[in-house]
C-alpha cells in the first residue's frame, strides 16, 4: 500500500472513531507542482487527501485558527519534521497544547516519500535531536557562501537590492506559523516604529524586525520564502539567524515543547561575545 493510501486509511479511522474532529492535510492544487491545504471533518472526504513530495508547505499554522482548539477536541495534521518542530515552538510559547494534536508524519528526503513513526511530539524527539546535528551541513547554500564572502558594504547593497522589491504584502507573515501575534508590530501605529510604505527604508525595517522576531523560533519550513511574490530569498536570512542562534546559544528551535525562548532566557554559560 502506498503511503498516501495508508494515511488516507489512518485519517478515516481517526475521524470515524471520533478520536479527532478534523484532519488537516493536502489536496490537489491548481497544477501538478502545487498542493493545497485540506480541512476534512468526515471520513468520506478522506479520499481527497493527496500525499507526495510536492506536499511541502508547513500546515502547523492552521492549528492556531481562532477557536479551532478551544473546545479541547483533537485535530490531526500532516507534518514534516519542520512542522513537528513548529508544534514544539508553538507549545513552548503557550499557543497550543500538543496533547490535542495527532501528528501524521512524513518526509521526502531527495524527493522520495517516507512515512514517519509516531503521533505525538515526544515521539519525534530523537529525530529532531538528530536534525540539530546535521542541519548546518545539509544547508550548504551556495548563495549564502557568496554573501558571507562579501564585504559589509557589498552585503548591504545586496540586501538593499533584494528588499527594494518588497511590496509589504506581509505574505511571509501570513504564511509563518510563528507569526501568530494578535497585532503585529508593523500594525502598531502609536508609534509607527516600522514604516509601512514600501520604500527601501521601510522595507529594511520590516525585514529586519521579521528576522529578529523569528530568530530562535524559525524552523526553516520555507513557508515564507515560497509565499513571497517577489522572490526575496528569505530562507537565507532564516538560515543565517538559525546558525547564529545555534552557535551562540546552542539553541535549535523546536526541540521540545518546554524549550525556553532563546531571547527571553539565559544560561550562565551563554557566550557574551556580542556584549561590547
Amino acid at each position: 500500500m502506498s503511503i498516501e493510501q495508508l494515511y488516507r486509511t489512518r485519517a478515516k479511522e481517526l475521524l470515524s472513531s471520533g478520536e479527532v474532529k478534523m484532519v488537516i492535510g493536502y489536496g490537489a492544487g491548481s497544477n501538478k507542482e502545487r498542493r493545497r491545504p485540506l480541512f476534512i471533518t468526515s471520513a468520506e472526504e478522506c479520499d481527497k487527501l493527496v500525499l507526495d513530495s510536492a506536499c511541502i508547505s508547513n500546515l502547523s499554522g492552521y492549528l492556531l485558527t481562532e477557536g479551532l482548539l478551544s473546545d479541547e477536541k483533537r485535530v490531526a495534521v500532516f507534518l514534516r519534521p519542520e512542522g513537528v518542530r513548529a508544534l514544539n515552538v508553538l507549545a513552548a510559547e503557550a499557543q497550543l497544547d500538543t496533547a490535542q494534536i495527532v501528528i501524521i508524519g512524513f518526509d521526502s528526503p531527495k524527493g522520495e516519500l517516507k512515512a514517519l513513526e509516531g503521533s505525538s511530539v515526544e515521539e519525534f524527539t530523537a529525530l529532531i535531536t538528530a536534525l540539530k546535528e546535521i542541519t548546518p551541513e545539509t544547508a550548504g547554500e551556495e548563495q549564502l557562501a557568496k554573501i558571507e564572502k562579501m564585504s559589509p558594504e557589498e552585503r548591504f547593497l545586496f540586501w538593499q537590492e533584494e528588499f527594494s522589491k518588497c511590496i509589504k504584502c506581509y505574505a511571509c507573515r501570513q504564511a509563518c506559523p510563528m507569526c501568530y501575534c494578535r497585532r503585529c508590530i508593523v500594525d502598531s501605529n502609536q508609534p509607527q516604529w516600522v514604516n509601512t510604505s514600501s520604500h527601501t527604508l521601510g522595507n529594511f525595517e520590516w525585514n529586519i524586525v521579521r528576522a529578529f522576531h523569528l530568530s530562535g523560533r524559525c524552523v526553516e519550513c520555507g513557508n515564507c520564502d515560497r509565499a513571497c511574490p517577489v522572490n526575496i530569498p528569505l530562507r537565507l536570512i532564516n538560515r543565517k539567524m538559525a546558525e547564529e542562534v545555534l552557535n551562540s546559544f546552542n539553541h535549535f528551535a523546536g526541540t521540545s515543547k518546554t524549550q525556553e525562548p532563546v531571547l527571553a532566557s539565559f544560561k550562565k554559560d551563554d557566550s557574551e561575545t556580542f556584549i561590547l
Binding site: 499557543q95 494578535r182 525562548p261 531571547l263 527571553a264
Partner: peptide, 13 residues
C-alpha cells in the same frame, strides 16, 4: 491585554 498573545516570553524575561 487586547494585543497580548500570551506567549509568556515577558514572564520569563
Amino acid at each position: 491585554e487586547s494585543t497580548c498573545a500570551g506567549c509568556w516570553g515577558c514572564v520569563l524575561a
